[in-house]
Design a protein around this nucleic acid. Structure first.
Lengths: 201, 201, 201, 201
DNA sequence: CAATAATCGAGACGGTACGTCTTGTCTTGGC
DNA sequence: GCCAAGACAAGACGTACCGTCTCGATTATTG
């Protein structure tokens, strides 16, 4: 997923030395490592350059700052992450999807993801990237579960789908960033249970 | 590291010049302004010192870093913020509480709060302060609504209370930090509606 | 490293595409312009390439660095500059020669020349080029005046010719690089006057 | 010789931590060493900081760039350099003064001085500092010899004194920067000889 | 006329210094 | 003992230029 300006559109034609795929990959690899090792904030562009063998100039040529590198590196590490369960039961699908998400949140990448979300509070560009490329795809997944459930008559058709999806994801994100309660399979199950049944008697 | 506001509880008269209350207040006031104007991250200790008339040494004497100042300043600005509605209806109480929260999120302080949450992803001390002093109090409020509702027989008594509270707050926090959907009264109502009824038919 | 203009003296036709004379001329022209406009140091290879339409690789293929280009460009602009006056009077010849030199120093090329001299203090290759191709030719001119004057009996035959020539050129160069006194016709005349008569009564 | 804005005028009064004399001295010492070891151009601010133990910020606080540091370091190393010979003979005084100068030029500091002169061709501020603080003092010295010689009747009173002084210094500077002839005692003697007698028979 | 060979423009790259910035500590003298 | 002023070390930032490189396109000689 290249960041540069509209490249690779046709079948190769542009003059000049082409971008080094090796350099690009090395930068992303080094960035992924560093995010895990020292965290998003403590990771420096200089260290990315040192580890990857790329020069700072090259990094700044292709990415505006270290956070842009971080997002691309993060995405490139988790391309085929989340499969749609589709068990035939919406309740079960939600349960599996949320378990998957929460396991991701609780893993080592989860800490990085939380830091990306944290950074997004300061940097609108990070926010946009995050929303479009990480949050959006997750929501589409749950939206598909929702639509199937409604079609099967399992789920209430007149609820606001956005609010419904937030009912599943919101608590998980809330726990991730606020850290007031555990993130584990039991939590996922409890959340889906109460979300399905509702608070009212 | 005396961060709290009530640090010298007893009237013990220590030798030497006492801490200047004027200086403390000026620092907090300047910090509040700066957080709103330039944001948590762009705000520098130097600028707080300049505006408040305090010296950097004084600030570092009383707070470990600018985020500690920020949290104290933020709290001092919103002490008596959230009243328990207690209308007699749990659904209505939830609605009013969430509307209050979302109005706060959507306001100018909301941006600062989101940045504090963002910073908490990097700084464990900020995370603890935030959890204990901002998130906790909100949750206690909703917990009270929950308990009343259960006692009145309105709410399902066998649900996990933690998960239940997350069902109300989670979606709001999720929208605050991810920004994928609006934060307004209608959103609050939609969230409470679907949370009360549940997703299942 | 073929820097000189006459690098392929014989008409030997080598295989492959021959060097583009147009490119060479464009580089020298662009360099001359840039030296005058922004100075020797601020002039970048990149900008020479941009203006001339040549690529950086081409420039580095034919010259070792921008200073070599600068020297060649400078020389190509002032090939037949200084004619030997030969008026019959050594005093007058010196006067005219020094006036010519000082006018050159005071002109726009003079600034460039001074910068080349400045650069020569750091780069031995520049120093050699400068000494051989710019300083040397000037000295030969004055040496000719000297020899004629000695032959005619006007000038003292037992003085060190090197020191004698330095007596004429030294003060001009000194004023060029130190800038403590003006460089104009009056200065030229004053220098030649006192050099001819000597300091002693 | 401090560079900062009009400091140290009165008997100490300014608030705040005073400038660290130790830091200042260490920077100048490191700079002097580096100028000799690697030359003016190859010397980096970063290396000055490393060697001196000062931070780059401190260096940039007190000097605009490395050349300003270099000039101050250079001056601080040669404060009491040139004594007025005053032998009673202008010819002898000139000879001794020029020998002193040329020995300085030929020494290790001479290379640094030449590089400062070289740098002055690009940087007007360096040029001003150099003219005012290094060239000027030398000229005053020779001017004193000149005035004494004229008063004693040894020297021609109607010559332009500026041109006369240039007759002594010019050739030495010329040889320093152009490098076409040696710089030694014999050269000094030859220059003074021919300057005293003049070129004419 | 094709093969060979050296050129060219374009532009990406590693390296490295620059000068700026912010953090958190320190050192003064005044209160 | 507190405080304002402000100097300081540490070190990352993003920019700039250098000289090298890798492309594909061009232009000559040679077989």
């Amino acid at each position: 997923m290249p960041v540069g300006p509209t490249e690779q559109s046709q079948a190769r034609a542009r003059p000049g030395r082409p971008r080094s795929e090796q350099s690009r990959a090395a930068v992303l690899r080094a960035t992924s490592e560093l995010m895990l090792e020292v965290g998003l904030r403590a990771m420096t562009t200089e260290e990315i350059a040192r580890r990857s063998g790329a020069s700072k100039a090259t990094i700044y040529k292709w990415w505006p700052n270290k956070y842009a590198v971080a997002i691309e590196a993060f995405l490139s590490e988790m391309l085929v992450e989340s499969a749609d369960p589709d068990t035939g039961s919406a309740h079960e699908d939600f349960r599996l999807a949320l378990r998957g998400l929460i396991r991701f949140y609780a893993g080592s990448s989860g800490r990085v993801f939380a830091q990306l979300v944290g950074e997004a509070q300061f940097d609108p560009e990070v926010a946009v990237e995050l929303r479009d490329r990480l949050v959006g795809s997750r929501r589409q997944l749950v939206r598909a579960i929702w639509d199937r459930g409604v079609a099967r008559g399992e789920l209430s058709p007149d609820a606001d789908p956005e609010a419904a999806i937030d009912l599943v994801f919101g608590p998980a994100m809330y726990r991730l960033v606020a850290g007031h309660a555990p993130l584990d399979d039991a939590a996922a199950d409890a959340i889906v249970d109460v979300a399905m049944r509702g608070l009212a008697r």
